[in-house]
Amino acid sequence: MNDLIPKLPLAKYIDELVVWLTINFEWFFDSITTILEGFVEGLVALLTFIPALLLIAMIGFLAWKVSKWRLTLFTVIGLLIIYNLGYWVEMIETLAIVLTAVFISIIIGIPLGIWASQKKVVKQIVTPILDFMQTMPAFVYLIPAIFFFNIGVVPGVVSSVIFSMPPTIRLTILGIQQVPSDIIEASEAFGSTTSQRLLKVQLPLAMPTIMAGINQSIMLALSMVVIASMVGAPGLGTEVYRAVTQIKTGIGFEAGLSIVIIAIVLDRITQKIGTKK
């Protein structure tokens, strides 16, 4: 078989493509690097500027606003544990990366999802790309990310975006398409324009589903922190990664626990926002 058809030089082509992109689109990647770096650093600066205890109180208040006292209690105690263990700054750095990645996922994902929900062709193109983004091992697209964005926080953010965006897009499409057809018919029958139908009917009704998508995106972005730390993104992931390479179980556990706490807090709060009427 291999004698009859020579092996496709796929690896070679991909390498060449990456090199070509790196050279010809340097300006593009450089400007993305500048913007993202500025964004994450600004966010870190802002969050570290606020005294830790005040920030804990603020997040606790947010939890209390959207949910009951139990989540509030968990949030406050959990964050105090992270503070006490000495991972506060790392936690902020992780949070900044996750929030940035999710923010980008939302501003790209929701419009794309809306577009795909309206046009069948778009959906047919987008769906396999989403499959690719979700199933291709994250390490693999970390390699070209280094070429494009160098070492640091940016390739971490970019790979988090790639990995975390699909649920937002998918659930936006699903949410809009799940709006009962008779309600769509009603809005048509009363003479809605396409944008009226979208803004007054489809998006509000799809909101809970879209929020579930955003929630999933946050979780996936968080799951990328250790992988992102391998290309130099700072934060709790770096601590975990270091503990692994130095075989320090205790430290690894402390950093890991911090990630778990952040994950639960973010998950519960965004879930509550999503299901709230």
Partner: peptide
């Protein structure tokens, strides 16, 4: 559709929000 014809639906088709 806006001025001349209105429609009433079997399953009401009201906006829940």
């Amino acid at each position: 559709r806006r001025k001349k014809i209105s429609m009433v639906f079997q399953k009401f088709a009201l906006l829940p929000h």
